[in-house]
């Protein structure tokens, strides 16, 4: 029986991608979901989504230290998101961010913890896609719901619905939470996962 060569993906790699893909997705839904469900907090979904997945992400990179690994995760999440009707902004966001994250972490062959955390931060930007699209495309999304009034009132409503502050909070909040979650991931790797023998 001949083993698959190092370049390609072994069956175990592909199965690991699937399993960890589920865990990453569920982490996002668990803590992000509540944000998305509340009207005033919906923009902060990416912040919530970044909270839990750090350790899962770090362990994944240790188990599948290949460029394509994270890229396939992005592709699969994009695909799944599409088939379940999620907005294309998030789906494409995951795809693009996963690929960029893979490139960054891959620069240091997935062995440098700092770069892996950076990769996780980049990965966490993905879900922002929807809200960024909304921000730049407000008129087409809400035009038909706006109160009929003066020109000024129209402009006021438009700017109120997605303020620059909200967007900044979303971006900065997500980056900070992703950093913390990634750091927790590094800590757990050292303290538990490597010793437990599952980091390979």
């Amino acid at each position: 029986m001949k083993e698959r060569n190092e370049k390609g993906f072994s069956v175990r790699d592909l199965i690991t991608i699937g399993i960890f893909g589920v865990l990453l997705l569920l982490c996002a839904m668990l803590t992000g979901g509540p944000f998305a469900a509340v009207p005033t907090l919906t923009f902060y979904y990416p912040i919530g989504a970044a909270l839990l997945a750090g350790p899962v992400f770090m362990l994944f990179l240790a188990k599948v230290p290949k460029l394509g690994g994270l890229m396939i995760v992005g592709a699969v999440l994009c695909f799944l998101g599409t088939v379940t009707g999620m907005h294309w902004g998030m789906n494409i966001g995951y795809l693009i961010c996963s690929c960029i994250a893979a490139l960054f972490a891959g620069l240091k062959k997935f062995r440098n913890m700092g770069w892996n955390v950076l990769a996780y931060i980049i990965y966490s930007i993905g879900p922002m896609g929807t809200y960024i699209v909304f921000f730049f495309n407000r008129e087409s999304w809400i035009g038909f719901m706006l109160k009929k009034g003066t020109e000024q009132e129209y402009i006021d409503q438009m700017s109120a619905v997605a303020t620059v502050q909200t967007m900044i909070v979303m971006v900065v909040g997500t980056l900070i939470v992703a950093l913390l979650s990634g750091m927790l991931g590094v800590k757990l790797m050292k303290k538990q996962f490597v010793k437990a023998g599952i980091a390979a």
Binding site: I15, G18, V76
Partner: peptide
């Protein structure tokens, strides 16, 4: 390709 199909099935 199976690099997409297998992970999806496993999910």
């Amino acid at each position: 390709p199976r690099t997409i199909v297998i992970p999806l099935a496993v999910m």
